[in-house]
């Protein structure tokens, strides 16, 4: 009897770590939920009070632990609940990007987005878009 092996195609699903600020982007993702906006389940969210709390080490740690991408969400410039935390995030993000480029991390893998509390659809759009991009980009092999 010839045995047929069914090819198990385990399609690559990127894993994204999302850091959302409590006041804007996290609320926006909540809004996306209450509005029943379905989006890719690839980005579990870690809530922080302000995007200013995001230590660049968190991003490095996530990439090191096997994340294929990191998404940071904060309030629009000028809208920060803590006045200017998001500007500090932006400052750090620019520097972090330079290090990541040197490490060979593709530009699309780490992304900073300003999403206000009312932009649930934007959360949906950004996560879907990023997941799609990372699918084509393939996995990030930090451990190898």
């Amino acid at each position: 009897m010839a045995t047929t092996t069914i090819p198990v195609t385990t399609a690559f699903e990127p894993r994204i770590v999302a850091f959302f600020c409590n006041w804007c982007t996290y609320t926006a993702s909540d809004l996306a939920g209450t509005a029943r906006l379905a989006y890719e389940p690839n980005a579990p969210v870690i809530r922080v009070m302000c995007s200013g709390r995001i230590d660049p080490q968190f991003v490095l740690k996530a990439l090191q632990e096997g994340a294929d991408g990191v998404l940071i969400g904060g309030c629009h410039p000028g809208d920060c609940h803590y006045q200017e935390g998001n500007y500090k995030t932006l400052r750090r993000f620019r520097l972090l990007k330079r290090i990541l480029t040197q490490f060979g991390v593709d530009d699309a893998r780490v992304r900073l987005e300003w999403i206000s509390a009312s932009e649930g659809d934007r959360v949906q759009h950004v996560i879907n878009e990023m997941t799609d991009q990372l699918r084509t980009l393939g996995p990030w092999h930090a451990r190898n």
Binding site: M49, G52, D55
Partner: peptide, 24 residues
């Protein structure tokens, strides 16, 4: 907001419920 915590190079600043260890 935790901005100081993220910037502290010696992890002396920490935030209740959002310590570095917790987020890691």
């Amino acid at each position: 907001c935790g901005t100081c915590v993220a910037a502290c190079p010696s992890h002396a600043a920490q935030q209740h419920h959002f310590t570095d260890a917790q987020i890691m």
